[in-house]
Structures are given as structure tokens and as C-alpha cells.
Design a protein around this nucleic acid. Structure first.
Lengths: 214, 214
DNA sequence: CTGGCTTTTGAGAGTTACTGTCAGAAGACA
DNA sequence: TGTCTTCTGACAGTAACTCTCAAAAGCCAG
């Protein structure tokens, strides 16, 4: 599909390419630019008129590309908001933890680590995305499905480390629960405008699983 | 924006009407019949050709109503699969639990109670729905959003009983986690063809939250 | 720097899930 | 039976995709 140039990479959600500043061909650079142009145009329109009131045609026009091109870069309008490469970062982070660390600590770090990175770089955008998540059902729906995918990956990682079966009920339930609780923490954080320390919120959320208050 | 159903009854997922066998007028009986006809036609087509390959027009034709009428009964194609009145049943069940029962036990029972009812009455349909849930992203997405709504309700109930704030992080995280774990249990059950005891699976799923295996 | 090769783009036509409107059919009720 | 309300179907419209195809543009010899 993409055998042409020397350093071809995944075209999917790869925006950290620019950081590498590798000798990308003109073509690749242009694609990156187009991708960013579309995203920028879209978020601009979203905050002006709202997500649902903004049509793909409008976005395409604002980004000065054709509607067809829009769909080549983002398979759906939702992907515009959803797509990120959090999962691979999380995997890397998890694998980098010492094998004898308490499992929950590894997971917690694996989640918070890339989160901190992303937050440092694009805090405002994250807040905006979370706002869309809160307000737009379609976005929420897609994000939740993505979270399930993340869950499957996490199950794989934990299975590897604990030796338990990745599709065993216990592991699946545990992972789903942690993700759900963490997601609440992030949401809570965003709802309050990002004023709290995400670290603490995550801690509180995860801790509350154990103690049932009874 | 159609969560409200002010004066008239919920037209959404109200199928237990028939159980009441109340002296419904001809009109109401007809509506019920139409509703069931559409659902039946739809599920028939779904299992023949799959969900996505089945168009609303086909369903309408098979049910012998106009497409307009279809959308009057089900606001979206997904609602056909999703809509149920599990939440109110759950609420009733929870409120019927003794106030001094351990909280987690009340929640567990509140979840499993209506589940058993539904399962006894329409086990096959539940399995079919779960299959769609597994296979069709759009369905999964919608179901997850509904689960969040359920979560909000549960938060309200728990807040009432414990005196904690319903929108506090701890409560929200806990509820989200329990629901996520339970959902995994139900999925697991469905994946294995409903051969296991759902009770046991739910127990295992919820229990696994506490023990982290560490 | 030129010409052939590959990838990207835009144009256009088609499908499907919806939404809104309106006139006519059909229960409800006096 | 006649009026009043609700339900239904036909129709027109929108928006998110999907597919196809030819032209444009980056790429890579020679």
C-alpha cells in the first residue's frame, strides 16, 4: 500500500512524525499539512457552530480540500475528534515498568504517563475534546467503543505479565472496571476545567474500587 | 433530543403494557401490534442478512408499514435492538432491598433480579441482541451510551442511600466500574452461548474488582 | 530536465439513515 | 352519526458516507 519512499510510516493517526523531522518527502509533508488543515478548520467551526451543526462539506471548504479528500484523511466525522495514538504510548509505558512492581501501580502509571505527555503538549485541545465528549452523543459513543479496544489491548498486556488467560472473565472484568473508573476521573477533571491534579483524581477513582464504603 | 416523554406513556421501550392486559383501546392494541410486527420483521431480516445489510425500507416493507411509520415507532434503527425497560426495573428492584443490606449486595441483586426476569421470558432474544452487540459497532456504541445513562441513575440511587453526593468522583467511579465489570460478565455469558449461570459469572466479575491478584 | 510511474486529488453519481410537512384514513367519543 | 383527535403514508429534503474515474502532482530513472 505504501512501499514508495524510504521512511514510510503509518498514515493513520501519526502526527508525531513532525517531531522526528525526518527527511520526509514533499508528498508526506503535504499530507501532514492537509491533515492538520482539516483538523484545524474543523475545530474552528465546531467551536463556532457546534459539532452537529457543522457539515463535512463546510469543513472541507474551510480547509480548502474536496469532500472526497476529507474522507480520505478521516474515515468518519467522529474520527476527527477521536483519533489519537494513546494506545501505543500506553503499551510502551506499561512494558517499561519493572516486572515486579505491583500490577495496579504499573497500570496506573501506564495510563497516566502518556496522559501527562499529551496534556503538556495540547492541554487546550484535550479539554475541547472532552467537552465534545460530554455534549455530543455520537462522539461519546465512538469514544466508548475505542475504550473497549484499549481494554482488549490492556488485557493482552496483563495476561502476558500475570500468566492469566487474556480472555478470562476475571481479567476482562478487572480491566474494564479500571478503565471505566479512570475514564470517570478524566471526565471529572475536564468537567471542572482541568483545575485539579489528574494524578490525584485517578488515584481517588481507582482506590474507590477497593473500598466499597460498604 | 428525545429523552422526555411528558404526558403520554413512554412510547420508547414499553412492551410490558400487554402484561397488564388492561382494557386498552383498539388504537393502543394496534400500536402494540405494529411495534411487534416491526421488531419481528427486523430481527428476521437481521438474522438472514445481517444488521448492516438490512435497510430500514426493507424492514418497513416486511412489516407492511411505511418507512415514515417505522421512524415513528423507533427513532433510529439501533433503537430497534437497544430499547428495553431494564432501568426502571432495576430501580424498583434496588428500592425493594432492605436499607441495611451491604451496598454491594443490593446493587448485585438490583442488577440480577430484572435480568433473570427478562431472561426467563425471552432468553433467545437476549442472546441474539448480545450477538448483535458483539458484531455491530453501531449497536455496541449505542449500548455503551445507554449504560452510562444507567450509571447516572444508579449513582442517584446510591447517593440517596449513602448520603454521598451523586456526582462525587468516588461514587461515579465505583458505579462505572461495577457496571463495566457486570457488562463483561453478561457478554462473557453470551459469548459462551448462555451455558453458564449468569449469577456466578456476575459474582466472579464483581469479586475480581476487589482482589487485584496483586 | 524529461518522460514514465505511482500516489493523491476532485468531480460526480449513488446509497442510506434520518427529518419535516401535509392531506387523508381511522379510532374515540358524544 | 358526526365531530375531534390521532395515526398513517407519500413526498421532498439533508447529511454522511461510498465508488469510480480521469486529471494533477510528487517521484525517479535515464
Amino acid at each position: 500500500m505504501t512501499p514508495g519512499n524510504p521512511p514510510t510510516r503509518t498514515t493513520a493517526g501519526a502526527e508525531l512524525e513532525e517531531l522526528l523531522a525526518a527527511p520526509l518527502g514533499l508528498r508526506e509533508r503535504k499530507k501532514l499539512k492537509t491533515r492538520r488543515a482539516i483538523r484545524a478548520a474543523a475545530f474552528g467551526l465546531f467551536s463556532e457552530q457546534g459539532y452537529e451543526a457543522t457539515t463535512v462539506d463546510q469543513i472541507a471548504a474551510a480547509a480548502e480540500v474536496s469532500p472526497s479528500t476529507f474522507f480520505r484523511y478521516f474515515p468518519t466525522k467522529e474520527d476527527l475528534v477521536i483519533s489519537d495514538d494513546y494506545d501505543p504510548l500506553m503499551e510502551v509505558s506499561f512494558r517499561s515498568r519493572p516486572a515486579d512492581e505491583p500490577l495496579i501501580e504499573s497500570v496506573r502509571q501506564a495510563m497516566i504517563d502518556p496522559l501527562r505527555q499529551v496534556l503538556a503538549a495540547e492541554r487546550e485541545e484535550v479539554l475541547l475534546r472532552m467537552q465534545l465528549y460530554r455534549e455530543v452523543p455520537a462522539i461519546r459513543a465512538r469514544a466508548l467503543v475505542e475504550m473497549q479496544r484499549t481494554g482488549e489491548m490492556l488485557c493482552g498486556l496483563l495476561a502476558e505479565r500475570t500468566g492469566r488467560p487474556a480472555d478470562g472473565l476475571e481479567l476482562r472484568a478487572l480491566v474494564a472496571a479500571i478503565l471505566a473508573a479512570s475514564s470517570e476521573a478524566v471526565q471529572y477533571w475536564a468537567e471542572r476545567g482541568g483545575r485539579d491534579e489528574l494524578d490525584d483524581l485517578l488515584d481517588r477513582a481507582i482506590t474507590s474500587l477497593g473500598g466499597f464504603g460498604l
